[in-house]
Design a protein around this nucleic acid. Structure first.
Length: 346
DNA sequence: TCTGGGGTCCTAGGACCC
DNA sequence: TCTGGGGTCCTAGGACCC
């Protein structure tokens, strides 16, 4: 028996969950995002495959989604329903004999299994998830987490794909570095500046050069990533949150200090609700502010004493806001509370 | 054309200490 | 007059992911 990693990724998850309770929308372009009103400031969380054909993607402003696909049905984000569906998916994965499940988000997880027929196991997992939830997923099969994760893209929708040491270079070698998990536009540009454009270039790159350009941790990580390497066993230790935050985009920009203070107080209150539930007080306060149209700043301050006190957190956030010394209208505010680590650390 | 809301991790560099 | 070498703690800021 061999150790394999499966990466299970739900297909158009938010839309799929909505279609279960609105079957009449199956086959139509459906967009889930914000409060479901395309005239508001909000973005697409998930678009159905039919909507994607019109160029609607996650992260696109709802207003633009409406323009690109005027016939789309817009639905509001309904977190509790997705959390519930997600929990059933994860429970199904954990019920597979011998499975070690590492959750990555609402709609995806790594599953470590021992099997001589990983494709058959992947099919079993897909069938079990479908039976338990009526939802379809794609499964990437790999000999490392990175390979399994990237394989999934080639299996979508409802399919599987296998990526291992043997076919990694053949499949990935000529692709740009942005095809890798964790390499975005900025990192890709910095790599290109030192002559690395493709995955094959990165795999062959000199480790010292990568470390010189990206530091000891990131440099070594990038080299491994190019070769598809890294961890090969999922880790199922329960997740312990480092921080909780809340942020809001205002439909009408804020212009007065009182409005800002009131908004920060409300956000701080919601943050404290979350950190109380963790039973670990806030030790550092992060303030995020976006001024119209797109300048975003974050500031951090460590508190003298860890606290659950909403007043202290809200006042600290406001002090950080004032320190920005920017009098443009405010489009977004966020407060994040970084908690004291649990006994024994993370 | 307009950019959510929830997160994590890393690096650089200053302040300070021995 | 010039200035080691190791370490910790802190903030700022960048980048990425779902």
């Amino acid at each position: 028996m061999t150790q394999w990693v499966l990466h299970v990724d739900m297909d158009q998850f938010l839309v799929a969950v909505e279609l279960l309770r609105r079957p009449e929308l199956v086959g139509l372009p459906v967009v889930v995002g914000g409060r479901g009103d395309p005239t508001e400031r909000a973005v697409v969380s998930t678009a159905s495959y039919e909507a994607r054909e019109h160029g609607v993607r996650s992260g696109l402003a709802l207003r633009l989604a409406k323009r690109r696909c005027p016939d789309a049905v817009f639905l509001p984000v309904d977190r509790p329903v997705y959390e519930e569906a997600s929990a059933r998916v994860m429970e199904t994965l954990r019920s597979h004999p011998g499975a070690v499940v590492e959750v990555l988000g609402w709609d995806e997880a790594f599953v470590g299994v021992e099997t001589d027929d990983p494709l058959a196991t992947a099919r079993e997992v897909q069938a079990a998830v479908l039976a338990a939830t009526s939802l379809h997923c794609s499964v990437g099969i790999g000999d490392t987490l990175v390979r399994a994760k990237i394989a999934t893209e080639f299996g979508k929708p409802r399919g599987t794909f296998q990526l291992t040491r043997d076919n990694w270079m053949e499949v990935m070698g000529e692709r740009p570095t942005t095809a890798l998990w964790g390499v975005g536009a900025k990192i890709a540009a910095r790599l290109e500046a030192i002559g690395i454009r493709t995955v094959a270039d990165l795999a062959a790159a000199d480790e010292d050069a990568l470390v010189a350009a990206f530091g000891p941790s990131s440099g070594a990580h990038l080299g491994r990533l190019g070769r598809g390497g890294g961890r090969s066993r999922p880790d199922d230790t329960p997740w312990v949150a480092r921080a909780h935050g809340r942020e809001t985009t205002f439909q009408a920009d804020l212009t007065t200090a009182d409005d800002v203070r009131a908004a920060l107080a409300e956000l701080a209150e919601r943050v404290v609700d979350d950190v109380r539930a963790e039973d670990r007080p806030v030790q550092r306060v992060h303030l995020k502010a976006r001024f119209a149209p797109f300048f975003t700043f974050t500031k951090v301050r460590k508190l003298a004493e860890p606290t659950y006190d909403v007043e202290v957190i809200a006042r600290t956030a406001y002090e950080l806001f004032v320190a920005l010394d920017d009098d443009r209208p405010v489009r977004l505010l966020g407060v994040r509370g970084e908690m004291v680590p649990p006994p024994g650390g993370y």
